[in-house]
Design a protein around this nucleic acid. Structure first.
Length: 587
DNA sequence: GCCGTTTTCGGCCCGACTGTTTTCAGTCG
C-alpha cells in the first residue's frame, strides 16, 4: 500500500517538473511538489482512502489532486501527465539535474537553441552558442560545464537506499525459488557503499539455467541485457541494472567473497594466499603445488585458512582490514540493536511532516528510550525555523508529552544554523533553554576552506552545542561537500567534547565513512542520527546509519546514542564542563 | 492547485547570491 503512495508521489513530482518547464503558475507547481514529497515519504493506504473519498483529508491534497491520484490508482496513468511528457523529451527534464540550471533556463535553451539533452548542452557550451542568449555570459557557460561534469560523475549510479529497496524484493523472490539453496547480495551493495553502480545477486543452485530463466521473468524486469547459463543481466523498470550469477553450492563461499569485493580487497587477499602457496579465485581455494582443493563452508572458513579473522563485508575496502584481521584487532562493529535513540529529528513545527506525538510513537515502536526533537532554528526561514516564542511553546508541549509518561524521554533540542559569521543562531538565553543543540551549516557554502573552517571552529565553542550535524554538507549525487579542514575540526571536537554526527539520511550519509576512523582515532565520539523529517525517517538509523558507522570501523562504545538516557545526559554535562574549563568566564 | 481566528478570493517564505545587468532574473536552500 505504501508502494502506491510512493509511486503516486513520484508521478506528481514528475508532473511538477514538467509544469515548471512549461511555465505554469509557480504556486500550482508547488502544490504538486508538496503533495509529491508528502506522498513519497508517507505510508498511507491510498486505495482505501480513495474508495472512501477521503483523499482530500491528506494535507495539501484538494479535489484537483485527489482526482489525479484516483486516476492513477485506477488506470495506472494520469492523462495530463502523458500529455505533458509529449511536450518535453526526457532529456530536457534531465537537464534540470545539472546544478545551476532551473526550469526557466532549461526552457530557454530548449526553445531558442533546440537543445534536447545534457549531451547537446555540453556541445553547445563548447561551441559558445549560449553566449548569444540573453541572460547568459561566459561565466554561466563555464558554470554549466562544471555542473555537467558533476552530473556525469554521478550518472549511472544509484543511492544505496534506492538500490536496497529494489534489491531486497528480488532477493526474496529468488530465495523462494525451490531450486535455489542460498542467495545473497554481493558487490558494493553488500559492502554498504553510499552509492552503487548495479545490484549483484549470487545464487547457490544445482540448476543454474532454470534460475537464469526464472530471473528474466521477474516482475520488475524492463529488458534482458544478456542471459547465459550462469550469469544474467537485466535492467529493471527503475533503470537499475542487476547481475545475477549462479554457482554450485560448493563454490558459493568463494564466489560470495569474490563478488563482494572490493576489487582492491580481493587483490590483497589473493596475494596473501599466493604467499602462502595457495590460489584463491571465485571457484575455490587450492594448493598451488598440486591443485588440491581446500574445503570451506563459509567466508569465515576462507579467512581462517588464510590465517585471518572473519572480515565483515563493510570493511573490505583494502584500508587496513587484512592487517587487522591478521593481528586479531578487527573492531567489534556496532549493530542496530545497540542504538537507544536519535537526537536530530524534525516535526511539523519546522519542515517535518509528522507531529511531535507521531514521532514519539514511532520512536517507541522502534524500542528507543529517548527521542531528541531538534527542529530548525529561526535563521532557517526556508524550513520554517522556530523563533524564540515558538521554542517556548514547543517546550511546553514536550513537557506535557513527557508528563504523560510516553514510555520514553523526549529531549529538547534544536538544529541551530551556523551563521556565516560563525555565530550560532539564537541569543545565549534562548540557547540555554535547550537540553542540547545540534549545529549545522545550511547556507553560504562557497567560502574558502580557511573561512569555512574558521566558521565551524568558532561555532563549536558554544557550550550548548553537543553535536556537529552533517559535517560535510554533501548531498549524494547532487552537491559536493563544502571545503573544510577536517583535521582541525576533528581535533577541536575531540578537545571540546563535541560529538560528530553520522547522518543516516540516505541522501547524506555524512560524515563520509572515509573520514570516520581518523576522527575516532583523534578521540571524537559520534551520534548516529536519523535527521528524520517523517515518522518512517527514524528507521534510517537502522537501515543506513548503522552501515555507515560499520564502514567507519566503529564499535558501540564510539557512539553516544548506544548509551542509555543517563549516559547521554552525562555526555551533555561533560561537554558543558569542558567548555567552561576551556573558556572560564564565558557563559 | 491548496487553503481559511484573513473562510470562497487572494496569498502562497524569502533572503542571499550570481551573473548579468545598470535595476534585474534565475537559482538555491
Amino acid at each position: 500500500m505504501s508502494e502506491d503512495c510512493r509511486m503516486a508521489g513520484a508521478r506528481l513530482g514528475e508532473m511538477a517538473e514538467l509544469m515548471e518547464l512549461k511555465g505554469e503558475n509557480p504556486f500550482k507547481v508547488r502544490a504538486y511538489q508538496n503533495a509529491a514529497r508528502l506522498l513519497e515519504s508517507a505510508d498511507l493506504d491510498l486505495k482505501a482512502l480513495a474508495l472512501e473519498d477521503r483523499l482530500t483529508e491528506i494535507k495539501g491534497v484538494g479535489q484537483g489532486l485527489a482526482d489525479k491520484i484516483k486516476e492513477f490508482l485506477t488506470t495506472g496513468n494520469i492523462a495530463d501527465h502523458e500529455a505533458l511528457k509529449l511536450e518535453f523529451p526526457a532529456g530536457v527534464v534531465e537537464m534540470l539535474k545539472v546544478p545551476g540550471l532551473g526550469a526557466k533556463k532549461v526552457k530557454l535553451l530548449h526553445d531558442a537553441l533546440a537543445i534536447n539533452n545534457v549531451g547537446e548542452l555540453e556541445y553547445a557550451c563548447t561551441e559558445n552558442r549560449l553566449l548569444t542568449l540573453k541572460g547568459f555570459g561566459e561565466k554561466s557557460q563555464k558554470k554549466i560545464l562544471d555542473g555537467i561534469a558533476l552530473f556525469r560523475r554521478h550518472a549511472g549510479r544509484s543511492l544505496l537506499s534506492h538500490a536496497l529497496e529494489a534489491a531486497l524484493p528480488l532477493l526474496e523472490a529468488i530465495r523462494r525459488n525451490k531450486v535455489v539453496y542460498q542467495a545473497e547480495l554481493a558487490g558494493s551493495l553488500r559492502r554498504r557503499r553510499e552509492t552503487v553502480g548495479d545490484i549483484d545477486i549470487l545464487v547457490s543452485t544445482d540448476e543454474a539455467p532454470r534460475v537464469m530463466e526464472f530471473v528474466t521473468r521477474l516482475a520488475d524486469v524492463e529488458s534482458v541485457i544478456g542471459s547465459g547459463e550462469t550469469k544474467t543481466s537485466i535492467r529493471l523498470k527503475s533503470g537499475m541494472q542487476v547481475d545475477v550469477r549462479a554457482v554450485k553450492p560448493i563454490e558459493f563461499p568463494f564466489a560470495l567473497h569474490y563478488f563482494t569485493g572490493s576489487k582492491e580487497h580481493n587483490v590483497a587477499i589473493r596475494s596473501r594466499a599466493q604467499a602462502q602457496g595457495l590460489k584463491l579465485n571465485e571457484y575455490g581455494l587450492t594448493r598451488s603445488a598440486d591443485g588440491t582443493p581446500l574445503r570451506c563452508l563459509s567466508e569465515a572458513d576462507i579467512f581462517k585458512v588464510l590465517g585471518l579473522d572473519d572480515i565483515p563485508p563493510e570493511l573490505r575496502e583494502d584500508t587496513g582490514e587484512i592487517e587487522a584481521a591478521l593481528n586479531h584487532s578487527l573492531p567489534k562493529l556496532v549493530s542496530a540493536d545497540a542504538i537507544r535513540g536519535s537526537i536530530h529529528n524534525h516535526t511539523d513545527w519546522s519542515d517535518g511532516i509528522a507531529t511531535l506525538e507521531e514521532m514519539v510513537a514511532a520512536a517507541k515502536r522502534i524500542g528507543w528510550s529517548y527521542l531528541g526533537i531538534s527542529d530548525h532554528s529561526q535563521a532557517a526561514g526556508y524550513a520554517n525555523g522556530l523563533k524564540p516564542d515558538r521554542v517556548v511553546a514547543q517546550h511546553a508541549l514536550i513537557d506535557q508529552v513527557n508528563a504523560m509518561r510516553p514510555g520514553l524521554r523526549v529531549l529538547k533540542g534544536s538544529e541551530v544554523d551556523i551563521l556565516a559569521s560563525g555565530e550560532v543562531d539564537f541569543d545565549a538565553e534562548t540557547r540555554g533553554q535547550f537540553d542540547y543543540l545540534v549545529e549545522s551549516v545550511h547556507s553560504r557554502f562557497n567560502l574558502s576552506v580557511e573561512e569555512m573552517t574558521a566558521r565551524v571552529l568558532k561555532a563549536i565553542e558554544d557550550p550548548q552545542v553537543m553535536v556537529l550535524g552533517h559535517p560535510s554538507g554533501r548531498l549524494l549525487q547532487a552537491r559536493d561537500p563544502y571545503p573544510l579542514d577536517y583535521e582541525r575540526v576533528f581535533a577541536a571536537c575531540a578537545r571540546e567534547g563535541v560529538a560528530i554526527e553520522l547522518n543516516a539520511n540516505p541522501h547524506r550519509l555524512d560524515l563520509d565513512w572515509r573520514h570516520i576512523r581518523h576522527a575516532r582515532d583523534l578521540g571524537v565520539k559520534f551520534f548516529i542520527n536519523a535527521d528524520a523529517h517523517s515518522a518512517p525517517g527514524l528507521d534510517d538509523v537502522a537501515l543506513y546509519g548503522i552501515g555507515l558507522a560499520r564502514k567507519g570501523w566503529l564499535e558501540a562504545t564510539d557512539i553516544v546514542n548506544t548509551r542509555d538516557l543517563q549516559g547521554v545526559l552525562a555526555f551533555f554535562s561533560e561537554r558543558r564542563s569542558r567548555a567552561a574549563k576551556l573558556r572560564p568566564g564565558r557563559a
